[in-house]
Simulated assay, not measured.
Amino acid sequence: MELDFSVAWTYLPVMLEATLLTIMLALVTQTIGTSIGFVFALGRTSRFGVLRFAVWSYVWLFRGTPVLLHLFFVYYAAPLFGVTLDALPAAIIAMSLSSAAYNTEILRSGIQAVHKGQIEAAEAVGMRYGRIVRRVVAPQAIRIVIPPYMSNFISHTKNTSLASVITVPELMLTSQMVYSSTYRAIEILSVAGLIYLVLTSCLTGLQLWLERRTSYEARGMSRRRRRQFLGASDASVRMEA
């Protein structure tokens, strides 16, 4: 059988529409997972042992079980507890919980990489915990976690294809429906793979931009910091003179 990509071209608008749902699912679940993961990462570094153990147990459970199982459990087991969810909300909940477990450990590594002396110095000048996190911990942790975080984001984007098993009409399920009716599996799946490659390539480009943006060596001093530095240098010269 010869390849005929004209079929894929005919159904390309349908596949691109499904791609929008894939993008939405990836962005929403990663955003929720990052928010939960940041709070849990702070819990993992807490001085309270009970809180650390509770968060560790959550991470252990969700990192140790497949995303596919999370999807099945939320979609099929939730009705046993009186909660019935449509496919898309179930996928968002399941994939957000899974994303949160991975992001917890990624963000924890960045938080713990900040030297304790800086936190103690901030406490010594009277800064509250929330302000220490915003002004001292988070800016340094973000720079450290960008490579592992974006790598996880790329994997998470590809994992949205698993939502097809609970009938979420994202790119993979739509592709399956198209090749089931056209019997052109190779052509349709090739186009689907190309679309996923474009999505992940955009995320890779975003990672490189963020790394350059947060690299002090690459971007040097800001204009404000440069003016302050030059002003201080001029003042010291005048004092010596």
Rank of each mutant, 00 (worst) to 15 (best):
I154F: 07
N159C: 08
L189Q: 04
H70G: 12
A54R: 09
L194N: 11
A101R: 03
Y183H: 06
S181P: 03
L206N: 12
S46G: 07
V7N: 11
P13H: 10
R225D: 13
F81K: 11
A113W: 01
G49C: 12
V198E: 08
R135G: 13
R212S: 13
Q140C: 08
T34K: 09
S161R: 00
L208T: 15
T65G: 05
W60Y: 14
T157Y: 04
I186V: 06
L71R: 07
R219C: 09
S35L: 13
S190W: 04
G231H: 10
L20N: 02
S233P: 14
V165T: 05
A218M: 09
Y75Q: 03
A91T: 05
M127E: 12
I166V: 05
L51E: 08
L107Q: 01
T214L: 13
V145I: 14
H70A: 15
V168K: 10
S215K: 11
L107P: 01
Y58G: 01
R184G: 06
P13N: 13
M239Y: 15
S190Q: 00
S180E: 08
L21K: 14
A124L: 13
V114R: 05
F5C: 10
F40A: 12
Y129W: 02
E211A: 04
T34R: 01
V191E: 06
S161T: 02
S155L: 11
A192K: 04
L25E: 09
Q112F: 05
I186T: 10
A8P: 02
A91C: 02
P66I: 05
F62W: 02
T204Q: 15
A100S: 01
L199G: 03
H156E: 01
H115R: 13
S99A: 08
S155H: 12
D86R: 10
L21Y: 12
V145D: 06
Q30W: 00
F38A: 07
Q112G: 04
L162V: 11
I144T: 09
E120W: 03
Q112D: 06
F53C: 15
I144G: 11
Q176G: 00
P89I: 11
I36T: 10
I132T: 14
W209A: 10
Y11G: 05
E105R: 08
G110V: 00
A218G: 08
V67M: 06
G64S: 14
G130M: 03
G49P: 14
I146D: 06
A94N: 13
A141E: 03
R184I: 02
R226A: 05
A100K: 07
Y183N: 04
A87E: 11
E170G: 07
S215E: 12
R213V: 04
N159G: 07
N159E: 04
S236A: 15
T174L: 03
I93H: 12
T174K: 10
S233Q: 15
T19G: 00
A8I: 04
Y196W: 11
L199P: 01
M150P: 10
W9G: 02
V125Y: 13
